[in-house]
Design a protein around this nucleic acid. Structure first.
Lengths: 138, 138
DNA sequence: GTGTTTGCAAAGTGTTTGCAATTTA
DNA sequence: TAAATTGCAAACACTTTGCAAACAC
């Protein structure tokens, strides 16, 4: 009864990524990865953790999000200056960003198609393509 | 035959946009608009102004950039959390962002083509599409 | 003159860091 | 026990704001 499956999965995910599965990191990983694709900021995650009764400092949330990102568990999405979002879906895909509400969401399937990609400038290589479709409430 | 963009003085540009052409705003508009397309942050513009002998405070640079943006003279481009870039080219186009150097540049011509656009979610309308091609040095 | 704009410094965000205490392996 | 991690507060980078003085019309 002590061995909860999802708990174990979070631990394995962290271990596999070379991150020590501490109490805080496991709790954050569960919040992040147990409910499918998520787009979340550090503040939001910290609030969720606190509401779930997990004692973790905001600094640790920031540090963990950055470590998870470096480890390839998360992807950082820049939508507007001053706020960072982290996306649990690390595969190549694109986003709607609601400028009214600040909400970020995936663009489903392949409903965005880039039919031509530019050549990278001299001495550079393409590292990734972000498409942000800005939307606002009707 | 080549389309020549009509030369508009900084003063007229500001007046037409409903902005009082003060000494500071005129100086900033000159720096921004007299040398073709530019991608610049508030700090950079402030430094340029200072180097050009224009006395203007950083707060006024920020305020002016925001006013210019609201007036449609500039377009703000979000590339990474924590830094705002302003683009003097307000037409629909896309960008390379060099993650190594922090440099932002236009993607030339039609070398990026979005061949499909998603439908906006319920009760929202599409406001614009940003394509950022992240590059890094070889 | 009257309303607008500026500059300064202070305040506000969001994020990172130094370091002692704690936890993990 | 040694090394890694945490929490706190302070530091940070960037941006906005309040208000008195300066300016544009």
């Amino acid at each position: 009864m002590k061995t909860i499956r999802p708990f174990t999965r979070a631990i394995d995910r962290l271990s596999d990524a070379g991150l020590r599965p501490t109490r805080q990191r496991v709790a954050l990983a569960r919040l992040l990865f147990e409910d499918g694709d998520r787009h979340i900021s550090a503040e939001q995650l910290h609030r969720e953790a606190t509401e779930a009764g997990v004692k973790v400092s905001l600094a640790t949330v920031y540090n963990s999000l950055n470590q998870f990102t470096i480890a390839g568990l998360l992807r950082e999405v820049a939508v507007e200056a001053g706020r960072s979002y982290f996306d649990t879906n690390t595969t190549q895909h694109h986003h709607f960003f609601n400028d009214d509400t600040g909400e970020l969401q995936d663009i489903p399937g392949d409903s965005v198609v880039l039919s031509a990609l530019p050549a990278a400038p001299e001495n550079t290589v393409i590292d990734g393509v972000d498409v942000i479709v800005h939307i606002r409430n009707k």
